[in-house]
């Protein structure tokens, strides 16, 4: 028996039991897309549901109750989790994800005790980097479960939790884009390439050297900054219809979609932009300072996960 690293996928599937067909990637992608679509509709409901509810003579208004939307989100989350765990989890990944989520929960607890300026939060860095290294599915689980577990740890359980889980899950899921771009440095002479490639940083590099690397790392920083704003903008949506205030920036039943978006934009700029700017700057700072060493460690552990003894 020769100890050689062999190319095996990060996500290993044992054969399906007799009588059951193996899962397909197409079905899986469709489940993800449809569940996310329901999530998106639930989030943007304040913009279009009041108009529709008026047009359908009242009964449609019940389809906009907060309880209904939270139930819908929970069902979609349940479907997404079932699908994500089904294709992505093995013992190594479960242990790794559990530990990373624990670290994020501890960071959120520290943030609760000692709040940073504005919306600064240290928990997003690991969510982004996990999605970046391990792909969209693991990124989604990392984001959603980080918020769930840390809500238990910090006592932050409430009707906002499904929204937070969805948004953080999307953050991790979209970070998976960075894991699918071809590697920057081709690794000749090694058989364990392919599945754990990372465009921005190769574990064999000690720092970003060339121009392409800098551009790709810049893209990751821009992505983190964008999510600093997006997270706040998306999360505001669930509470915005319930807040009373200046009529120019408040939600009102019967608004047209365009008016709703306009008022929300004013509300966001007036109340949340500077707050979320701290989140965006914080994400960029954390990634700039800790991103590369953390990526290097995550890549090293991913390589360890793929190591198997060949026959």
């Amino acid at each position: 028996m020769i100890a050689t690293p062999v190319q095996t996928p990060a996500i290993q599937h044992t054969p399906a039991p007799p009588g059951q067909r193996a899962p397909t990637r197409v079905l899986s992608a469709l489940v993800f897309a449809l569940a996310s679509l329901i999530g998106v509709f639930a989030f943007i409901a304040p913009f279009f549901l009041p108009t529709i509810a008026q047009n359908t003579a009242g009964m449609g208004g019940q389809a906009y109750s907060p309880l209904f939307l939270v139930t819908l989100l929970l069902l979609s989350l349940g479907a997404l989790m079932l699908e994500a765990q089904g294709r992505a989890m093995n013992a190594k990944l479960i242990a790794l994800l559990g530990v990373l989520i624990a670290i994020n929960s501890a960071l959120r607890l520290a943030e609760t005790v000692l709040p940073g300026p504005g919306g600064f939060s240290p928990v997003f860095m690991l969510i982004i980097l996990t999605g970046c290294v391990f792909g969209a599915r693991v990124g989604f689980l990392m984001g959603a479960l980080s918020l769930l577990v840390s809500a238990f740890v910090t006592g932050g359980i409430g009707p906002w939790l499904p929204y937070q889980m969805f948004t953080a899950g999307w953050m991790g899921m979209t970070a998976g884009i960075f894991s699918s771009i071809p590697p920057l440095v081709p690794r000749s002479g090694t058989r364990i390439a392919g599945d754990f490639r990372l465009p921005i940083f190769d574990s064999s590099e000690s720092k970003i050297g060339n121009r392409k690397s800098k551009i790709r790392f810049g893209a990751l920083l821009a992505f983190a900054a964008a999510w600093g704003f997006l997270y706040g903008a998306i999360m505001n949506l669930w509470s915005w219809p319930f807040l009373a205030g200046d009529p120019a920036q408040s939600w009102q039943a019967g608004l047209s979609v365009a008016d709703g978006i306009k008022r929300y934009a004013v509300y966001y700029v007036a109340t949340s932009l500077w707050w979320d700017a701290f989140a965006a700057i914080g994400n960029v700072m954390l990634l700039a300072l800790f991103g590369l060493p953390t990526l290097k460690v995550l890549l090293r552990f991913k390589r360890k996960f793929l190591f198997e003894i060949g026959d």
């Binding site: 899962p23 899986s28 699908e83 765990q85 089904g86 294709r87």
Partner: peptide, 10 residues
């Protein structure tokens, strides 16, 4: 046992 969700469940 298989950890993966079956095609029928999907």
């Amino acid at each position: 046992h298989s950890q993966a969700t079956s095609a029928r469940a999907q």
